[in-house]
Structures are given as C-alpha cells and as structure tokens.
Design a protein around this nucleic acid. Sequence first.
DNA 1: GGAACGGCTAAGG
DNA 2: GCCTTAGCCGTTC
Length: 105
Amino acid sequence: MQSFDMQVYQLTYQIPPGKVTTYGAIAKALRMPNHSRQVGATLAKNPYAPTVPCHRVVYSDGKVGAYFSETNSEKKAKMLMDEGIIIVNDKVCNFKEKFWTDFFT
DNA sequence: GGAACGGCTAAGG
DNA sequence: GCCTTAGCCGTTC
C-alpha cells in the first residue's frame, strides 16, 4: 500500500541512528511540502511506534516535537543523545549536522 | 458524510 | 530569540 501515512512511516523508518529529520523534509520527500502537518499527524497515529523512530523527527527549527512533551522529556532527550544527537532544552543543538534527508521511495 | 484533531511551518510582533 | 496568528490536509471519531 502506498497511502500517505504508509509513505511517512516508510521514510521515518529509514532514519538511521544518530540522525534526525523534520516533518517538512519528509513531506517534501513525498513531493508534498505542504503536508508538513500531516506527517506529524500521521506519525501521531504511528501503529509502528517501536518500529518507526518517530522520536528522530523534529521541528524545522531543530526543536523536538511534542513527542517528548508528554512526559519525561529530558529522559527521552537522553535517548536521542545516546544515538549521538545533542538535545538541550528540547532542541537539537547540532541539528544541522544531524539533519538527514537521504530519503528514498 | 461531516466535524474535530493533530508530534507542523512560515511569517509577524 | 520567543510567542502568537494563519494556513495546510489526512486520519480519526
């Protein structure tokens, strides 16, 4: 199935450890830069939760998505750090360095 | 079938 | 640099 949500999960699943990307980047990868919000909404339903590293997807500014806003944001941020991603104040410091857009469909 | 929600983004103050 | 406002469109209820 090549539904919109499926594409999102597919691309997000491609994100390697120590790398992060943005919703806009995923939407753009799908040739739908205006669906930036849909990527987030779709990932929110993410039935592949443990399979799809939705936590590696952040805001365009490098700020961590609401994924961490739930609880223990600091703890989850540490999880990303374990992958080599520096998170400070719910934001990716070396975001630009970790920004990964090598998607493929 | 219709309304509400959502892990956003860009622009303005 | 941070907060607010407006606009997008698919998924879910």
